[in-house]
Lab assay of single mutants.
Amino acid sequence: DLSALRVEEVQNVINAMQKILECPICLELIKEPVSTKCDHIFCKFCMLKLLNQKKGPSQCPLCKNDITKRSLQESTRFSQLVEELLKIICAFQLDTGLEYANSYNFAKKENNSPEHLKDEVSIIQSMGYRNRAKRLLQSEPENPSLQETSLSVQLSNLGTVRTLRTKQRIQPQRTSVYIELGSDSSEDTVNKATYCSVGDQELLQITPQGTRDEISLDSAKKAACEFSETDVTNTEHHQPSNNDLNTTEKRAAERHPEKYQGSSVSNLHVEPCGTNTHASSLQHENSSLLLTKDRMNVEKAEF
């Protein structure tokens, strides 16, 4: 173990290094160091905050020279020094078990990766560091076993998940096959086929009936047209017969005018059967003409 005197000496050296690497504005270890034209180094955030307070150039807090945003430059070497100082402080805390008085939040800088452990060898070769390295080497064999167990647990979990997924996939297939086998029997399929065939026959029977009705309507229309044509021909046949009657009536009127007047009046009210309204109107006109002729003949006879 380190003596108290040596611990104090190391602590004083760390404090001196820390004062050199402090920012003059925030009085902390410089984060993202930036250098000016006057070779003074500050935190990048502190300098941008200072420049944004005034429009135009501002003055350096140490030498009062003008500073602009374009004049600022990043210093990589200074950032490396800060990183190495942080590593020294971490090693000091691990070796002594004491917390550094002016320690900052170094938890963000710590890294437990194997590459980081290899890099620590180049920091300080001390008894405390050696003991700590031995402890780490002793704890390393235990870690692979834990990793193997965790991997086995994960693989077993994956296997159970896969088996569950396969079961879920197989179950719908089985149910679907069961439904297909038990849903419709052979008799049901035959009945469905016969039902479809009967429906098709009914459709075939319905369509000819409609065509037959249309044919019957067409035949009825044709018969009505033929009947009207026969009526017209009958009226045409009746007209010459009426003319013959008129000639006979004229002759009778010349011989017996008194008797014919009474008979002509009675004939006005008689309509021949089986004739249309057109034929009756023609008869009325003929009878009126005959009456006028008879009157003329009677007057001539009187004179």
Rank of each mutant, 00 (worst) to 15 (best):
A301S: 14
N105T: 04
V82I: 05
L158F: 02
A279L: 08
I89F: 11
L204S: 12
Y100F: 09
Q59V: 14
E9H: 06
P61A: 12
T233Y: 00
T292D: 14
L151H: 12
T160C: 12
V265E: 06
T96A: 04
R130A: 06
D244G: 03
K69P: 06
F92Q: 14
E28C: 11
L146A: 12
K54N: 09
C23S: 15
M17S: 14
L86V: 03
T163D: 05
L245Y: 00
P57R: 06
E142W: 05
L289T: 13
P61C: 00
K134S: 07
H238L: 15
L29V: 07
C225N: 09
C43Y: 15
L136V: 11
L136D: 02
K37M: 02
L94P: 15
L137M: 13
M127R: 07
P208V: 00
P57S: 05
G262V: 10
D244N: 03
F45D: 10
A220N: 02
K19R: 04
D66F: 06
E142A: 09
A224S: 00
L21H: 09
R135L: 07
A107T: 06
Q154L: 04
D213V: 00
K64W: 00
Q261V: 05
Q239L: 10
K167Y: 00
G262F: 01
D200M: 00
L62Y: 05
D294R: 01
C26I: 15
V232M: 03
K192N: 07
Q173R: 03
P208G: 03
E32N: 09
T160I: 08
E249N: 12
T149P: 08
C60F: 14
L282S: 11
M17G: 14
V7W: 09
K87V: 01
M47C: 15
Q18V: 10
V10L: 09
E83L: 13
L146P: 14
K250A: 09
I89C: 10
C196L: 01
R251L: 10
L136C: 03
N243A: 09
C46P: 15
H278E: 11
C38N: 15
T189Y: 00
I25P: 15
Q80C: 09
S150D: 02
P61I: 03
L29A: 13
P208I: 00
G274R: 01
V121F: 02
T211I: 07
K44A: 10
Q147S: 10
P141F: 04
K87W: 12
L217H: 09
R6H: 07
P208A: 02
F45Q: 08
D39G: 08
E22Y: 05
E148S: 07
C225R: 13
N157V: 05
A223S: 11
A133K: 07
L86S: 06
S183F: 06
E32L: 09
K259G: 09
N105A: 07
